[in-house]
């Protein structure tokens, strides 16, 4: 039963691997960013799971309640979410500029364009 009780960690691992796979296997830059996001989100879920105390409620002081969940991991993850947003927006900004100068967002095509440019450069 242990396995089922820890289902949130299974979700974390599944999301982590799915995001990581997408990040590695995809040639499309936007898909890479989506993969990266899923990968990061799985870590957020890991932290949030850590903060849950069995039987605890939200950490707000109230009468008759003496078991609270740990708010610290949640606060930490707020910071990590901000970091994730900045990373995503920076990555998207880069993709826009890559699209402007290469007219494609496919990694293989970009490498091909660079290779052709190199050959022309060396023959000239």
């Amino acid at each position: 039963m242990m396995t089922l009780e820890l289902y949130n960690y299974w979700v974390v691992i599944f999301l982590m691997m799915a995001g990581f796979y997408m990040l590695i296997a995809s040639n499309h830059l936007i898909r890479k960013i989506i993969g990266l996001n899923i990968f990061q989100t799985s870590v957020f879920m890991l932290y949030i799971s850590l903060g849950k105390v069995a039987g605890g409620t939200a950490p707000i002081a109230a009468e008759g309640i003496d078991t609270y969940s740990n708010p610290l991991p949640h606060v930490l993850i707020l910071t990590a979410i901000v970091v994730g947003i900045s990373t995503t927006s920076l990555a998207l900004a880069l993709v826009i500029r890559i699209k402007e100068s290469y007219d494609t967002v496919n990694e293989d095509e970009i490498l091909e364009i660079d290779r052709i440019a190199d050959e022309e450069g060396s023959s000239a």
Partner: peptide, 27 residues
């Protein structure tokens, strides 16, 4: 060079994977 853009993107992907691993470790 426009390749600075792809270099930066590649670094961003690798660097973020690294930083996320560090985040997992600290967690």
């Amino acid at each position: 060079d426009r390749r600075a853009l792809t270099a930066s993107f590649q670094y961003l992907i690798m660097g973020t994977i690294g930083a996320t691993f560090i985040l997992i470790g600290i967690g």
